[in-house]
Write a protein that binds this DNA or RNA. Sequence first.
DNA 1: GTCTTTAATAAGGGATGCGTAAAAAGTAGC
DNA 2: GCTACTTTTTACGCATCCCTTATTAAAGAC
Lengths: 410, 410
Amino acid sequence: MAVKIADPLLMREINKFHVLETIRCHGQISRVEISERTLLSGTTVSAITGALIEEGLIHATHTEANGETHRGRPRVLLGLVADAAYVLGIKISEATTTVTLIDFQGEVVTSVQLPIRLSRQPAEVIADLIEDAMDDCINKSGVNRKRIRGIGIGVPGLVDPRSGRSYASSVFGEREVPLSALLGERTGLPVKLEKPANLLALAEAWFGYAQRDKSFGVIVLDQTASLGLWLDDDVHRGASTLGPTFGHLKVGSQGVACDCGQLDCLNAHVSDAALRKHAADALGSGFVQTALARTSITAALAEACDAGEAEARKIIDGHGAKLGVGVSHVINLINPEKIIVVLESQRYCDLVEPALRAAAAANSFRAHYASTELILHTLDDQLWARGAAALMLRDIYSAPWTSAYQEELQ
Amino acid sequence: MAVKIADPLLMREINKFHVLETIRCHGQISRVEISERTLLSGTTVSAITGALIEEGLIHATHTEANGETHRGRPRVLLGLVADAAYVLGIKISEATTTVTLIDFQGEVVTSVQLPIRLSRQPAEVIADLIEDAMDDCINKSGVNRKRIRGIGIGVPGLVDPRSGRSYASSVFGEREVPLSALLGERTGLPVKLEKPANLLALAEAWFGYAQRDKSFGVIVLDQTASLGLWLDDDVHRGASTLGPTFGHLKVGSQGVACDCGQLDCLNAHVSDAALRKHAADALGSGFVQTALARTSITAALAEACDAGEAEARKIIDGHGAKLGVGVSHVINLINPEKIIVVLESQRYCDLVEPALRAAAAANSFRAHYASTELILHTLDDQLWARGAAALMLRDIYSAPWTSAYQEELQ
DNA sequence: GTCTTTAATAAGGGATGCGTAAAAAGTAGC
DNA sequence: GCTACTTTTTACGCATCCCTTATTAAAGAC
């Protein structure tokens, strides 16, 4: 039984949720329009918005009709109270860690970057560093700490959101780190852990390209390739709760070894490490070393390609082709409405796109390829943060009819 | 907005659904126990069961406490009225078509086999033949035609359940057949079309191995390989509504051509046609011809293998290996709680299982492989039928909180 | 400055639902 | 036959929704 028994209170909660959702999606909206959109009666909308105002979640922004001026009493526009709650979004990467404070509307309040390579430190030290960064972020913002409702974190590698543990992550020396617990102790706040791709999926679903879509996938290349799958209004986690393993799909049969001990995993072909190796083989280790001191491997390849280096072009095409095969598996099996591929730079998107699309098309069933929209765009640091924030915000907004709601409350 | 606005009527519908679900799952159950399981108050359960009795969906089976005798007033056991509704389940294959009448409890009432190769006939003729078979089935059962609520059909090839059309099916000469419409006209009943794998997924979810699972996949080899995916209490259809295309996943890189025009599709390696070709190449076309006159290709291979034929063993292992690669993609991307592989005979299950498991394990990420249970079992003709029936039954039982409910009513 | 128009709230009537608590029903034990 | 005990139903109170009809509020139109 995934759905709760109905009683009058649940009824209210459901309708309250719908009203809040409508306000959240629309930004500024009058009671009449809420009534029209939700099909709730004006009376009910008034009662619910009244309660929400009392709870401090929304307020009348007092702005009258926008632009054109109407005849009668102007509509009072309602909007979320930005100050109603705050959430910290944290994105941990190998080279940089970003801590961002997000308000109830999902807007960035403050953001702090920690340009530190964490991988040499034990988990306890890393937790301390992150705590300092959070404090810094909060202090800069001037936000009352009591209004902060939780912390959402994205960390590479395997993540079990249920236990809040990170496994085999490249940023930690330890194989297993109870990151949720470490940060929960220090802050007294609820902490949610997710893999970065799921964070992006959340961000796309809440703020990005996929707000209306029932199903979509987000593929992100952040050291390794990873997929976040959004199905039925939630991140898909699967039986292991680890989410899909895009990076270990098998592509091709060249017999390239992957860290996981198997052969021809996608990651063995498209991870940053693999790209560096390809580049070193084709362009010389000197090129790689000088380039990487300055920039990322994809940026370096893009530059070399633009400089007319045929080998760089070949590597990029190969990269796109392998990614395309992976994408084709997603199209064939899931056939989501959208697949969003998130890459580091616009230039690299442009360079990799032809080969990626060609491979995706060549390896997926026609009808499915035609119905899945393939989008490439660049990685926005704020998108990470907002995804991490959405992780916590969705708890505040949580849909009342799911049993998950109850579990998370206790 | 996937969820309806709450009002008192919806509330009743939700709770009614829960009560009916409880009765359906438990078979015979007293009001008290329903109250305990659903957490609804006794009053409400009485009111709802009263309404359900009035509607003729359930009745008091008047059996008192089973076995042990209790102290106070004995519980009145309630159960589904088998006669409350009937549904026709139809499974169309190349060689045989089965028509089955199922009652409200999901039990088979009558079943009729049409041992006719349909592929030579135009769609209109096929529809006529099926209509005759349905009439025969109904007449034999003695069931009042008015009690029949709909028809569920499984047909190989591409199926668009939304339009009720079958595309590129091996059983039809035409590329596109509006089968729902053809049978709807003839019977005046609602007709639902599905691909066979989805039918099996439904059957497993309602009656089979996966009644408790949130997510699972069913793989069936019926001419070609096909996958039905059950996610979030429903068959997953994807953007194209055609469902996953397991058979056109790319496995290996031998460059074997598939009907779809691409290379190395799973079907190009594991379809019945591919197996026949492998068998003809390795064992001689004479073997294939004499064997197929008598039995199926898998049964023939199993026999040859049992007779010590090394080439047959090799073909079966290859078959299992390719299937295993396909399975690994499902495990990596979806990581469902179960994957159920449905094969023709128990013997073939036993023979193909080692290679299948080995390939699945070798190509899927460890944690995911470990958390997905892999089950092989044989195809039961009744399972098809019950799946087809569930297709319609779920409309009668339909969950009131989804928008799909509303769409399907109109 | 008054009239018109639209928005929002308030009040009353009607319907439905849930839940609690008491009454009715039905059986076993003494 | 009476009592004890459990199930089921009935009666009542309360909450929610909806609708209709004022009432109040705030602007534009004249």
